[in-house]
Simulated assay, not measured.
Amino acid sequence: MIRLVLVDDHPVVRAGLRALVEGQDDLTVVADVDGLEPALEAVQREHPDVVLMDLNLGEGRPGGAQVTAALRVLPDPPEVLVLTTYDTESDVLRALEAGARGYLLKDAPPAELFAGIRAAARGETVLAPSVAATLVRRAAPGATTITEREVEVLELLARGLGNKEMARELFVSEATVKSHLSHVYTKLGVDTRAGAVAAALDRRIIRR
């Protein structure tokens, strides 16, 4: 029997996933929780094989990537399988770098979800097709790679922050922000802040 903990901030979603998953003879949900502290408590209490993790866990709260990182440093950590609506490059990279075993989307057919859970429990990597395509594109020879810090800059640009505000958010100087912007413009082939945001959204580097 594969034991799961569900992490999602929407009770209805958790209830739906629980009902769906427990229709399988070899899967059981031992806890469903809505954030970091409850997830840590449930995992240490229940010792699940897999944690099914949403990425957006509410405004102002640690996100799924942060929860994943916290779970993966526990003794005998569970495998984490992300299940989310977001397939942007920044979300994918943050989740995988945090230690997620796989990354599926909430529009996946149930059979794909069940197979993904079983594969993650075996320690295998599980990726939605669009996520795999993102990683392949990023790794292709000659591909223009946007760094994690540049993604942060793009996200702040999308929020409409000026250079001084961005410097304050990132704990760097305005000169460093200007340098990051210059690199971003070059990599995206644009010459304006609006153009950078539009290109990043179009290439699914950041969320809308």
Rank of each mutant, 00 (worst) to 15 (best):
L55C: 03
L113N: 03
A119Q: 15
D32K: 11
L27T: 12
A70W: 05
L135T: 10
P110A: 01
K178S: 01
A143C: 09
D8Q: 11
R203G: 05
K164D: 12
T147Y: 07
K187W: 04
D34T: 05
F114S: 04
G195F: 01
E165Q: 13
P75C: 07
T145M: 14
V126S: 08
E169F: 15
L57K: 10
D9G: 06
G102C: 13
I146F: 09
P38L: 09
G142V: 05
T28G: 13
A120K: 05
T134W: 05
G195M: 00
L81S: 00
D8Y: 11
E165Y: 07
A111H: 09
D26W: 04
V126I: 06
R168S: 12
V7W: 10
E148K: 15
R94T: 00
L105M: 10
L55P: 01
L81C: 00
E124W: 02
V21H: 11
A196E: 00
D87L: 09
V13G: 07
R118K: 02
A42E: 03
L71D: 04
G142S: 09
V73P: 02
D54C: 11
D91Q: 10
L83Q: 01
H183S: 14
E97M: 06
R137M: 03
A132F: 07
H180P: 02
A132K: 15
L55G: 01
E152C: 04
V50S: 08
L83P: 00
G160D: 03
G189H: 08
A69M: 02
A194P: 01
T147R: 14
V177I: 15
T68N: 02
R203K: 14
A15K: 15
Y185F: 15
A143H: 11
R149H: 06
H183P: 01
A119G: 02
R193A: 02
R61G: 08
N56C: 10
R193Y: 05
S179M: 04
S179H: 13
L6Q: 11
A167I: 06
Y86A: 03
E79F: 06
Y103Q: 09
S130V: 14
A31F: 09
G195N: 00
L157E: 06
